[in-house]
Write a protein that binds this DNA or RNA. Structure first.
Lengths: 143, 143
DNA sequence: GTTCTACTTCAAGTCGACTTGAGGTCAAGA
DNA sequence: TCTTGACCTCAAGTCGACTTGAAGTAGAAC
């Protein structure tokens, strides 16, 4: 068998073993069995973990991510939901672009107060009208 | 005086008054004074709140956001930090782009399992090598 | 002058995502 | 065979960002 020990998975995925146990409890991943007490995993779990990390970065909750997969581990075929999430991401990406530009500008602009700088104001306004107050999302904090 | 009542600010900014009090306590915003018990705010607080919301969407913590402003409300001139944050955002934006493309693909691809689809695999791999396991960030949850 | 109501303070509660701690177990090496 | 160390379970703790609840208060309407 080519299965991986939990320590190996934790190491390769860059997450603590406690997180793997937690994800398993939540149904996000599953182990193929045990060797003694120790969980063994199919190498495919690494893809799954990458996908989960990606989803978390995008701000999806673990529950939402779980919904994107069928119980067998395959992405679900709820195409409408998938598209909706993609649209949501598109909006977020645009907002972040505005913020990035604002930060870069703030780092360069010599105006005494950035709120007095027309470039900065335009960026803020763009963000505000772009729906900044709309549903935000929270990716994970690294420990 | 053109100051705004807390209720007015809450309404215009789309956040509950409790959040405004909380932000004030954290030093993220400040009121110009009171009318009776009620906090009054300078209209400029709306810009500040927009900026805070933007920062939260980008995944910065309230403490980090607070650091981006001088005590007088002006953006701080820590250009290095600002640039670093912008770079960080750039990475996040790229990752989200990958995820968005992945989702769109998953919504369209007819392969039985997406992990068997080469397009999807390429996307995941791109994400993984792009540093998905790197410091993530968490924008706010809307209630 | 009394009542109403939206505000006030302060402490405590909530939620998601994990982490930590206590006490237990088992495969492998000496 | 015995020890060791990394895993195990389960409950409880933590952290950030707010929200909620109880008890109080001031300005406006009656």
């Amino acid at each position: 068998m080519t299965d991986l020990d939990i320590a190996e998975v934790a190491h390769r995925a860059g997450v603590p073993a406690s997180t793997l146990r937690f994800y398993e409890e939540k149904g996000l991943i599953s182990s193929t069995g045990r060797r003694g007490l120790r969980r063994q995993y199919d190498p495919g779990v690494l893809d799954r973990l990458a996908l989960i990390a990606l989803g978390r970065t995008a701000g999806f909750s673990l529950d939402e991510i779980a919904q994107m997969f069928a119980p067998d581990g395959r992405p679900r075929i709820d195409r409408d939901m998938l598209s909706a999430k993609a649209d949501e991401l598109d909006r977020t990406i645009r907002e972040l672009g505005v913020l990035r530009d604002s930060l870069r500008h703030a780092a360069a602009c010599p105006a005494p107060s950035h709120l007095e700088c027309s470039t900065f104001r335009r960026l803020i306004d763009a963000a505000a009208s772009g729906g900044v107050a709309a549903p935000g999302r929270r990716p994970p904090e690294r420990r």
